[in-house]
Design a protein around this nucleic acid. Structure first.
Lengths: 202, 202, 202, 202
DNA sequence: TAGTAACCGAGACGGTACGTCCCGTCTTCTG
DNA sequence: CAGAAGACGGGACGTACCGTCTCGGTTACTA
């Protein structure tokens, strides 16, 4: 059970931690993830390489923490999916916002890097999913449960599965760049997923 | 106007090409994509490095061709989505098969490598999408159009969008490893997507 | 006028000083001088790095002090070259003992380290010469002067130069490892140096 | 018996070899041996680090080869100790020249570095002795043998030992920097060694 | 049927970044 | 306030690969 070689976190330099986050995000934005190197981050942050290796196991882990740090600052509480009583409108609003975010260059670079790492590295991926992705998906679960309570979603539907009808397609288009990510696309996805693509029998 | 640097494809060594594919796929399976190197592929294939650089621009491009070569051999004509008249059953069949494929280690390694590269590199990604992904998605388009003709899918539905309700969620779970990919999950996705999650009015 | 950076020697920990000497000599013996590090000495001695940096300017300086400490313990007064009246016999005795010492592993390691540092670093070298080497050479000067008084060495001979005829060759063979250091070699050196290599005219 | 991983010497770049020698000697002269790094040599020579590591096992080995290369160029045949028939004069001439060389900064830097490495590293030292030192000492052996033939040195004297009476003291003073290396010192050493320090009986 | 052009295996080369080890300094907490 | 502990900025280590560049050798078209 005993950890070996663990550095003393209480003596950690907050100044360095911040400088590393800033440098990492800046470099990924400027030159892309693969051309971002740990040496480059260290140099830009005015930090010794060992200070990075002491606290993170990989470049991707640094970026994940930097991204989470950024997300925390951006979030500031107002994270829930709105509930106006109109599920379709609420989901369209959120998915359109997601589309906009995915299309914004500032988000795109680091997010792609993390997504790609996640695809390929189970360890880093587990962190990404647990700390960033699942908390966001949980918001959909809550909104869908509220909709179930309000009789707008069938009670036999599993919200944790259903939410992927909305997020899965968007994520897929974003990652694979198959076709443009538009508000119209987001709307269609919401409509199809809510009401199905088979004709109404009644 | 004449290209000067283009090598003479007619004199290309088929033996080397195959050896490179085999080596590349084997290495990705054994040590993972990032630890697979061009030098390693060349050594394993008994080939000079220049022979790789002559014909491919990057490690990812080698792997893409190797993967396509593999897919072609595996496909052998029987590629269409079955049409028994029962759309729900047909889609469940295909999606269950997809789930099995995604869960098989032989497919998993190289496919993740290519997916990750696609997320991060637009150039390689375009190749991947055009030569591998879109042809597969086109099969869904055809099946859905047939379903529309048969009155099983509403005619105002865009098949190219609708298909993502099925493939998007599966791809997302596979890539992000959020939750297990099971037959049951595939079934639920088909059901939800076909009939929606909102209650039937009639 | 007051020195500000000089630590208060009266409060120095004798326990740490000894532990550092022991650790330094042990490490040099075990892994060699170049692979002996200040961090390693500190860790082995159970001492903070700063405790070493506070009292010594360099790794070599630590080792020099450690070696001097060792030499002092070993010496215990009986340091003079014997004077039985037979200069040749006395010198052979001492040089044979020197040969034995040079051939002993315990002496060899740290002594080589210090000698090498001396060759390369004037500062450390000056310390080494002043505190260890010259006091030993002075013993030869005294013995040779006694021999001059006894008419066994010409009075026009400079003892400080003459002694190097004995010590120089031995030191050279030891340092350069050209040929084995043997008692026979020591004897020959004494004989040649005392009586010359040119034929006696008389 | 089979060597592994040996690079193909026939394809070696002579241009790089020379550039590395030049850079190594220049750096040792400018900043000293310990502050000369392999990275520095590579950078100065406009060469990849691996090109150094491919052909030499250590910084000291590079310098040894560079020094030998320099010595070969300087030597150009005229290497024998002169034989005018007057052994004393010939030896004084050579030893005075040696003193001058030892006092010249261009020689001093690299020579000290190699000597220090030799003291400490048996492997490098063996190379140094075999390829540089012994060939030079062999010149003394030849001159002393000629002197024996001419009746100027006793025939029972071992020339390989006797030469160390001349070279040992000089080397020792140079290495340890005990006292200044002067022409006068060289003369005294020759006189003492040739005729001994004990009074002539006849 | 010799000449020659290209591909090929091989691998040396100038580089970049890796992850590690230590340097010497600085800071925090303990006796 | 000396000392233990160790985080820090920094520099060099020796290694792994990158992509480029010869170097013979072996085909396979041309003169």
């Amino acid at each position: 059970m005993a950890e070996t070689k663990t550095p003393d976190a209480s003596r950690r330099s907050e100044r360095s931690r911040r400088a590393i986050f800033d440098a990492a995000l800046a470099l990924v934005a400027e030159v892309g993830y693969t051309r971002t190197t740990i040496e480059g981050i260290a140099a830009r942050a005015g930090v010794g390489k060992q200070t990075i290796y002491r606290w993170w196991p990989s470049k991707a882990a640094v970026l994940l923490d930097a991204f989470l740090d950024l997300a925390e600052q951006a979030a500031q509480g107002e994270t829930e999916i709105p509930d106006t009583g109109d599920l379709e409108a609420d989901l369209k609003l959120v998915l359109r916002a997601t589309v906009d975010e995915m299309n914004s260059p500032a988000y795109d670079g680091p997010a792609r890097a993390l997504a790609a790492e996640t695809v390929v590295s189970p360890e880093l991926g587990a962190q990404f999913v647990e700390r960033l992705l699942e908390p966001q998906l949980e918001l959909y679960v809550r909104r869908l449960r509220a909709a179930q309570d309000a009789g707008q979603v069938r009670t036999d539907v599993d919200p944790r599965v259903a939410l992927e009808l909305f997020t899965g397609p968007l994520a897929h288009r974003w990652m694979m760049r198959t076709l443009p990510l538009t508000h119209d696309y987001a709307d269609k996805i919401v409509e199809y997923a809510l009401y199905g693509i088979a004709p109404r029998r009644g």
